[in-house]
């Protein structure tokens, strides 16, 4: 049981998908202007990431491996992720149109979000079982959402700060993200996975 907890801690804190592995940076910068949209994006990504890491494991285990066509892994993963994202987009469009409008381009962009594909591939690379890959996907998504929400709250405050004109907007955002990842290095070595 403890190694499941270790997986979670390691994906959320120690090698956080955004601040340590530097995956999924474009939605991280793009959607973190306001807190509400960040929370919306966090939920959508968690839903997509968990679903796609499970389905990518299933496809890899029961479709690609038995037929020996692992070389199709990337294309089929992208395929599955695209479908899951399209499904999520429909759900979000129906449930909260405002979130759909505000997330705008970033919702379909989850398909190309390197964190999603990254997690799927890392699952296979590290030979995770079914539950492990689900947990790994879920942990990575929680890590992504947590950092995204923290970053969005900070950016709302910095947006009003007297930042030099040359650095306003994405520039100060990137610097802040850099300082955040420096702080997250404190967790390095917390868990030997």
């Amino acid at each position: 049981m403890t190694d499941y907890a270790l997986i979670l801690i390691s994906t959320i804190l120690v090698n956080n998908i955004v601040l340590v592995k530097f995956l999924g940076l474009c939605p991280f910068m793009g959607v973190s202007r306001k807190l509400e949209t960040a929370i919306g994006m966090g939920l959508a990504t968690t839903f997509v990431l968990t679903l796609s890491s499970i389905s990518s494991y299933l496809i890899n285990e029961y479709l690609l491996a038995p037929l020996g066509i692992e070389f199709l892994r990337t294309i089929s993963f992208i395929f599955v992720i695209a479908v899951v994202v399209q499904f999520t987009e429909l759900v979000v469009h129906k449930t909260s149109p405002i979130l759909y409008q505000v997330l705008g381009i970033f919702l379909p962009l989850i398909t190309t979000n390197c964190a999603v594909l990254g997690v799927a591939l890392l699952n296979v690379q590290q030979g995770h079982g079914f539950l492990e890959s689900a947990l790994y996907g879920f942990g990575a998504a929680i890590g992504f959402s947590m950092v995204l929400i923290i970053f969005a709250a900070m950016r709302e405050r910095i947006a009003v700060a007297d930042v030099p004109v040359a650095f306003q907007g994405a520039a100060i955002g990137l610097i802040t993200a850099g300082l955040m990842s420096m702080a997250f290095m404190g967790f390095a070595g917390l868990v030997h996975v």
């Binding site: 496809i59 479709l63 690609l64 066509i69 294309i75 089929s76 395929f79 599955v80």
Partner: peptide, 11 residues
Amino acid sequence: LTAILAITLLA
């Protein structure tokens, strides 16, 4: 052939 078949099935 199996590769193509698999992908079309998935699709």
